[in-house]
Design a protein around this nucleic acid. Structure first.
Length: 271
DNA sequence: CGAGATGTTCGGCT
DNA sequence: AAGCCGAACATCTC
């Protein structure tokens, strides 16, 4: 499920455990979410360590502990972070449980497309440092966006929006939302975008991120009623602006919804 | 019961 | 040869 705003909300769920020690660590070591991770070191080092703070970058989260322990979490498609009572019995999909005095911090993921990483040392690990600039930061400018798009000239813009190296945190619903609000057809090739469309895309990327963080990211409240997110889910969904039935197809392997009136295809381009 | 799902990666093809 | 596409991953839900 989670994209940048949902990830931010999940990250904060564990805040209740800040500045408290981890008493016990329970994990399903053999599960796929621990692929390429030293789960035993994770368990040994975190047992007795204090939870110091956390941060989200795009869809990635980092939880920092004493003893130079860094816990990275990606939620994949079905991951979630929850807080339960300290005696919460680990369910089938609760792959990592950090037991504290008052509560248990729980990571669960049914489909296991997510992953847990662990690092120990004074410096943050390379897999955390190597992140593109946040879409909300001053470093994400129209020239930066333009240069990034030039590297994928023949990819449909919808596919490019899903590239985490360019749009960290944007997932399927946000990509459709940004394109709909921008009035850009999802199958437009990146190289076909006009300067004006590039500017609009940049602006809408920022505003959709900002608004999603203020609503979903803050308290899981609904984004504005006028947004596409509310109607794009079902096959019978309609454009919030025209009430026209939405178009649907698969682009980049993902279901894509758009409005033929708001997002006209460029003349000469197929579909 | 089959299809599809708010994600990422890898192998193959152009 | 860079870059795009489809399949695979594992489970649940509609």
């Amino acid at each position: 499920m989670p994209e940048l705003a949902e990830v931010e909300w999940y990250r904060k769920q564990w805040d209740v455990g800040l500045n408290q020690k981890v008493i016990e660590v329970h994990l399903h070591l053999q599960k796929r979410v621990f692929r390429d991770t030293d789960g035993l070191a994770l368990q040994t080092v975190l047992t007795g360590a204090k939870f110091l703070g956390s941060e989200a970058r795009g869809k990635q989260m980092m939880f920092r502990f004493t003893r130079g322990a860094w816990l990275g979490v990606h939620l994949g498609m079905s991951g979630r972070l929850q807080v339960h009572g300290r005696d919460h019995p680990a369910g089938k999909h609760d792959h990592l449980v950090l037991v504290q005095r008052r509560q248990a911090l729980v990571y669960s993921d049914a489909r296991m497309f997510g992953r847990v990483r662990f690092h120990r040392g004074p410096e943050e690990p390379a897999w955390w440092s190597a992140h593109p600039p946040s879409l909300a930061s001053a470093a994400f400018t129209t020239p930066v966006l333009g240069t990034a798009l030039e590297r994928h000239p023949r990819a449909p813009i919808k596919t490019v929006l899903l590239a985490q190296s360019i749009f960290p945190g944007v997932g399927n619903w946000m990509a459709d939302e940004i394109l709909w609000q921008s009035g850009i057809h999802p199958q437009t090739l990146a190289a076909e975008l006009t300067a004006e469309q590039l500017r609009t895309l940049w602006k809408k990327t920022r505003s959709v991120c900002r608004t999603a963080l203020r609503t979903i990211g803050a308290d899981w409240s609904d984004p504005p009623k006028t947004w596409l997110i509310h109607t794009r889910r079902t096959r019978t969904g309609r454009c919030p602006r025209h009430q026209l039935p939405l178009e649907r197809t698969s682009i980049g392997g993902r279901t894509t919804a758009w409005c033929a009136a708001c997002q006209p295809a460029r003349p000469g381009s197929p579909r």
